[in-house]
Simulated scan of single mutants.
Amino acid sequence: MAEHIVVVGAGYAGLAAAKLAAKWTDSRVTLVNARDRFVERVLLHQLAVGQRMRDVPLADVLKGTGVELVVDRVTEIDPEAREVGLTDGALAYDRLIYALGSYSDLSGVPGATGHAHTVSTREDAEELAVALEGARAVAVVGGGLTGIEAASELAESRPDLEVLLVTGGGFGDDLSDKGRRHLRGVFDRLGVRVRDHAHVTGVRADGLVLDDGELVGADTVVWTAGFAVPDLAARAGFAVDGRGRMLVDQTLTSISHPEVQGIGDAAAMKRHDGLELRMACATGLPTTQQAVRALAKRVGGGEPADRLDFRYHVRCVSLGRRDGLIQFVDADDTPKERVLTGRVAAVAKELVVRGALLFQSHPTMPAG
């Protein structure tokens, strides 16, 4: 009798995993997701400033694959019974692929939950769009790629706004010298102010409170400083790290439950040399292919190679619609001095985004 593989979460990693599992095994595959649409999360900062997003029904992407779609929210996982609890009933599984992703973490700073906006989900971005309608000053908290892209998009789309980026580290710390210079030039051109090495200790309706007591005024706060993962894996008793991400081996298999795989942002993945992989599409898509290859090998009665071969190539940053930054990196994600900038980089970033969506229709195509 064919095994039943249940995939929870239909983000970039989960949707691809379900389609690959159906293609590479003879198993029955069910994909569970809280929404009936695939959301291009990397475009949500654009949605927040009024740009349109593609409408991608999951049913259309899954047509002809044999994957059964269940639109419901996962409430719990019982690994002993091998069952996924849903708002409406439960699903039994033989194998589980855990792909519930991540979301912006507002829990660490007083007032953030009540006064800050995020771009983690489509609903978050739509709420931010409403908040921006009457705003004059916006503070973006977080100097990672999400914060940089959000601040750039806001400033370019809404030149009437005063945009401030606040980061606890140095501005562009994860980039090369050439990358930082270009980033600073674009922010200067767009009029985005930067406060780096500034630590936010509170969020109020009228702005941010820094650790020295200074109030930084803002009508709207956009929070991009750090991500958290759902607590379902921890509550289920799976082995997790200190952030609640599922601990997996080189085949992306749970170290505590061999019938379960963790992929995407919700898994703590390490390369064969011990390098911990960052949360990103650039990580999630190629490692998902490797994870499902390993699963298919096991379903077929074999044993996969116990080695996660993975390397980084670039970091792609949109800086509005007319500029961008492609930062070339070594295999371990260390930035090189080689960069691509300007309109060419903006086009390259758009092609990467379109490629991530195309991958969902053709998940066997090379992903890294």
Rank of each mutant, 00 (worst) to 15 (best):
E3M: 10
H4Y: 08
H4I: 08
I5F: 15
G9M: 05
G11N: 01
G11W: 00
A22C: 10
R28F: 07
T30P: 12
T30N: 10
R35Y: 02
F38D: 06
R41S: 00
V42N: 02
Q46W: 03
A48S: 14
V49C: 08
M53F: 08
R54M: 11
A59F: 06
G64Q: 09
V67K: 14
V70P: 04
V70T: 07
D72F: 08
E76A: 15
I77Y: 08
D78G: 03
L86S: 11
L91E: 02
R95F: 08
L96M: 08
Y98C: 01
A99H: 00
A112V: 07
H115P: 13
S120A: 14
T121D: 02
R122P: 08
E126N: 12
L128K: 10
V130P: 06
V138Q: 12
V138S: 11
A139M: 07
G142L: 02
G142C: 00
I148F: 02
E149H: 06
E153W: 00
R158G: 00
L161C: 05
V163E: 12
G170V: 12
G170H: 12
L175F: 14
S176R: 02
H182Y: 15
L183K: 04
L183Q: 03
L183N: 04
R184A: 10
F187K: 01
R193L: 09
V194T: 14
H199A: 09
H199Q: 09
V200C: 14
G202A: 13
R204T: 12
G207M: 13
G207Q: 09
D211H: 12
D211F: 10
D212Y: 09
T220L: 04
T224A: 14
G226L: 10
P230C: 10
A233G: 05
A236H: 02
A236V: 01
A236E: 00
F238L: 12
V240A: 01
L252C: 14
L252D: 07
S254Q: 02
H257Y: 05
G262R: 05
A267C: 01
K270R: 14
G274Y: 01
L277E: 00
R278F: 10
A280Q: 07
A282Y: 01
T283D: 00
G284C: 05
P286S: 09
T288Y: 00
T288R: 02
A296I: 11
A296W: 13
P304K: 04
A305L: 15
A305Y: 07
D306E: 15
D309N: 15
G320L: 12
R321M: 08
G324K: 02
Q327K: 06
Q327A: 04
T334L: 05
P335K: 05
T341H: 08
G342T: 04
V344I: 11
A346R: 00
V347W: 15
A348H: 06
V352M: 10
A356M: 07
S361C: 03
H362Q: 10
